[in-house]
């Protein structure tokens, strides 16, 4: 018997929550074959699934290993559904260049934040980890970004964040580009000290922070 859209959405939701990264691709393809809209599959199936996984993490049921597999499942689902969207829809105006600063290779947190930012409709340009400081500036100029997001899990590489802010000043771009920072050794006081525009301690805070920046500004190039 053909499943209703509601049933299929529930299955997509479950596949993300239950870490079914190996079967979710087929499930998403079936969903499309049945003629159901891709956008609803993303917004009412995959994304709520990832949000549920985040809630499970907050409650201590899941931790990073589970979240990593959930986000793999999410990515696989997205890669099937996205090409079926009417056109690429970037609802938000902010363009974000994101990366882990030079000297640090820990990029799990950054990857998760990137996925969630993309889902919120931001254009995100991911530079990866161990990113040379000038590359943040170069990429931001190239794509006319209005936000640079940097993270570090180590205390010495963290100091590179201030250098990026100084480089922006030298280039006369400091007013145009907001800088947000995060990572274990980074604190709100540190963010203030280096005159960053914002600090987020986790994914939820990063999204709230982006929301604030989005409302206050649009690309000014």
């Amino acid at each position: 018997m053909i499943k209703t859209q509601q049933e299929m959405l529930q299955m997509l939701f479950n596949a993300v929550v239950n870490m079914e990264d190996e079967t979710i691709g087929q499930l998403a393809e079936n969903y499309i074959k049945m003629g159901y809209p891709a956008m609803e599959g993303i917004n009412q199936g995959l994304i709520p699934g990832m949000k549920k996984a985040g809630e499970l993490m907050e409650h201590g049921v899941y931790s990073i290993p589970e979240i990593l597999i959930c986000s793999m499942a999410l990515d696989k689902g997205l890669s099937v559904l996205r090409p079926h969207l009417a056109k690429e829809k970037w609802e938000k105006t902010s363009r974000i260049v994101i990366g882990v600063v030079q000297g640090d290779i820990h990029d799990i947190g950054k990857d998760l934040i990137r996925v969630m930012m993309e889902l919120e409709g931001y254009r995100v340009y991911d530079l990866g980890s161990d990113v040379p400081l000038e590359q943040f500036i170069n990429k931001a100029k190239e794509v006319q970004a209005n936000v640079i997001a940097m993270s570090s899990l180590m205390s010495t590489p963290m100091l590179g964040m201030e250098k990026v802010i100084n480089m922006l000043k030298e280039e006369g771009l400091r007013e145009k580009i907001s800088v947000i920072v995060g990572g274990a050794p980074v604190s709100p006081e540190f963010a203030q000290r280096i005159k960053a525009d914002g600090y987020a301690k986790d994914i939820a805070e990063a999204l709230v922070l982006m929301d604030r920046l989005e409302k206050n500004s649009s690309p000014k190039h």
Binding site: I64, P65, L68, I69
Partner: peptide, 10 residues
């Protein structure tokens, strides 16, 4: 780290 953490599930 990522391989190790994901391996705990997979």
């Amino acid at each position: 780290t990522e391989n190790l953490l994901m391996g705990m599930i997979k």
